[in-house]
Every structure is written in C-alpha cells, then in structure tokens.
Design a protein around this nucleic acid. Structure first.
Lengths: 208, 208
DNA sequence: ATGTCTATTGTACCTTGGTACAATATCCAG
DNA sequence: CTGGATATTGTACCAAGGTACAATAGACAT
C-alpha cells in the first residue's frame, strides 16, 4: 500500500512566504507545491488529486478571489483556504459566501492553519465524490436523465409512463439502465446520489 | 387571504439606528420589531413566524456572535444578517462559518441590505421546513426511527428483518407506520425528507 | 384493574419493481 | 450502407412492497 499524501497547493506572490509555508505543511506530512501567481497555478492543470489550496488575496495579476471565481467557472473543485494580510471584511465575507473553507490573517497561527487544512481536506473528499457522481451522470442519455428526475420524485413507473406517453415496460427498461449506469441497487441510494450533486426532481402538476 | 409579511427582527444597542432601520424595512413592506439587547430579544420568544434577524456585533451584555451561538444552542433557527461598524475580519469570517447569511458593514448600502434580507428569508423558509420535518420525526417511536435509518439506506424489508432479528411482516408494519407519520408515499420522498435534516442511514457491514 | 401505546406476528391478496429473452425502428458515423 | 447507440415495446415470471383484517403480549399510566 503506497500512502498518498494530500497535496497542499500554495499560491502567494511572496515567494519566501510561500516556501516557508510549504516547509511548514511538509513538516506535518503533506506534500506541497508553491506558485507565485494565480496564472502559474491555473496552467499546472491536473487538479484531480486530493488536496487543497492555500491562497493569498492581494497579488499582481489575478487576485485570490478572482482565482476562486475562475476555478468555479472552470469547474475546478478544490477547497480554498485564504491566507492574507489584507484586513478587509467584505473580502473575507464574500470569500466565505463563495465557498471558501476559511479566511485567515497573516501572520497565521499554526493551530488555526492546520485546523483549516483538515477541514479543507474533508471538504475536498466531498467535492471529489460529487465530481465522480457528475461523471457517472454524464453517461446517461437525455431520455434516461429525464426519467431519472421522475424516479427521484418518487413517481411510479406507470405514472412516469403516463407523463411521457410511453409504456410502463419502456420506463422499466430505462430505469434498469439508469440503476446499472449509476451503480446503485435501490431508489434510496439513487436519491442520495442525486442529492449530492443537486439534481432536482420533477414536480408533479397537481390536478384540480 | 390575509397576506403575512415576514417579520424583520432588529437587535442593536443603538436604539436610534434600530428604529431608522425598522422604518427602512417597513418602507418596503416588511414588519419590523426592534430590540436594544440580545437578552430582550431572547425573552420575546415565539420565533416560529417567518422572518430574519438583523444583528449588531458589539453590544453591552450578550454580543451578536454570542447571541448567534445561544440561538443555536436553544434550537432557534432564524437566519441572521450581521450589521456592524466593527471592522474585524475574524469576527465576520466566524459569523459566516457559523451560518450567518451575511455580514455587512455600517453604514450599510440599501441594495446590499435588501439583497441580504431576501437571501435570509429564502434561507428562513428552508429552516422552517427543516423544523417541521424534525417535528414530524419526533412522532416516531425509537423502533420506528431505527427502522427508518435502515430504509433510507436502501435495505430490503427482509434484510432489515434479518438485522433486527424480527420477521419481515413486522418490518412492513413499522414501515407503513413510518410512511404515514411522515406523510410520504414513496421511499424517494422519505430519503429527501431525511436528507434535509441530516439523518444518516445505517451502514451495512460488508461481509467478506 | 383497565385502557392506551408499542412491538410483534400471521394470512391472504394485490400492486409494483426487476429481469430474462426477445424484437422493431430511428439516427448517425465511419 | 452498415454497425452501433438509442428508444421503444412485448411476454412471462419472480421478488418485493403495501394493505386489509386480524391477534398476542409487555409497559405504563390513570
């Protein structure tokens, strides 16, 4: 068994600070990788390994919050911990609203940093799981996806058939295919799976 | 149909500020209620109507963040928007981590305040729904709750029966009771319901 | 003691879900 | 045009869920 250490990405224009931060996290067993700009970080690519990002706010070029938004746009799901000397409340609050794990002020206390990294890595696991689920969902055809939304709404096969104007037999065929593709054996698992990536069930129009 | 306005609770030791804030939110159609201390607010009770809390940070006695924590302890689920002149980053960040909807600096821009209130009221609806679900869940007996956890794990009746060393018939009886009490007709609805209040399914020990 | 709540189980029956073994039709790319 | 993916449907059968109509037994409170 080869132990895989989570990788701590560090983006800070102050190279000295970044390197000392790298040494610090490496001292407790993490792998670290240092970048001096957001652009350099984005060019690296391959963000699929488990890890998190320690990110400065004020930087020449793309700032920390801008990188956060760009990552969201690109679908890069990596938990972010901001580290900054920039004592601006709205910036910190917005970063948190946008999903940052923490927003710490330099000089950062080791305890708080390590705690934040732990939290970030936990969140990273969830994000990776969601990514995997999204990947599975892409294997569904449009029709299957449509029927999936009815299934997780709790509709019976015959009701789905009625709404789509097809036979119950066909719904069963699709349903079976969906379950196989998503690797679940029960509706309960199916619903929990879809909840994790925010798929909304169809809403049955109430007849009067 | 009597229109029910959401109620905006305001807690600020600066009574003048509180009252002017009340006039402001009332001008756009909300009901407002002003308190000059956390204690006064807590004594009011009856926090079940739809609404949100505009809360100051620095106050004599119980501070805003302390009130936030106390409300959490007491199970009072009302969305909070902080309004403060206290430009402290860690305070703002912690408030957000603890579930605040927003953390705005005085003097607050009307746009941002109204936006924050809208967001808070949306969140309030979710919180109220969760409260209602928790209320329903309290009507379950211990045994029913136990079986519920197996059901939402996607287990078959016979598997549940096996684990609890009872007959499948008994599981069916409980299952039926659970569905009735929670007002759902499908496992899918049941799972979504429980997800909203964070009930975790039992984990099947994998046999080798 | 008597009644209520809870947990348990039984029988019988029907509905729904799942699947094995099929076929037909359309669309699209190589 | 030919193969593959997709959507559709059929038959038959079995497993699983749901329920109506029941009963038994223990715990607990009035």
């Amino acid at each position: 068994m080869s132990e895989i250490n989570p990788k701590i990405f560090i983006v800070d224009d102050d190279e000295k600070f970044g390197k000392s931060l790298a040494r610090l996290v490496e001292s407790i067993g993490f792998d670290a990788e240092v970048f001096t700009s957001s652009e350099e970080f984005l060019q690296r690519g391959a963000f699929d390994e488990p890890g998190c990002l320690l990110l400065d706010v004020r930087m020449p070029g793309t700032t920390g919050p801008q990188l956060q938004e760009e990552m969201k746009n690109r679908g890069i799901s990596m938990p972010i911990v901001f580290l900054t000397a920039h004592k601006d409340v709205p910036t910190g609050v917005k970063a948190m609203k946008d999903g940052a794990v923490d927003f710490l002020l330099k000089p950062v206390e080791e305890d708080k940093l390590f705690q934040a990294i732990d939290n970030a890595l936990d969140k990273g696991a969830d994000l990776q799981e969601a990514d995997q689920i999204r990947c599975l969902l892409k294997t569904l055809t449009e029709r299957e996806y449509e029927i999936l939304q009815w299934i997780i709404a709790g509709m019976l096969n015959k009701q789905i058939a009625w709404h789509l104007k097809i036979t119950e037999r066909t719904v069963k065929a699709h349903r079976s295919q969906i379950m196989h593709k998503l690797g679940v054996v029960s509706v309960a698992e199916l619903v929990r799976l879809t909840q994790k990536v925010g798929i909304s069930p169809v809403k049955e129009p109430v007849e009067s």
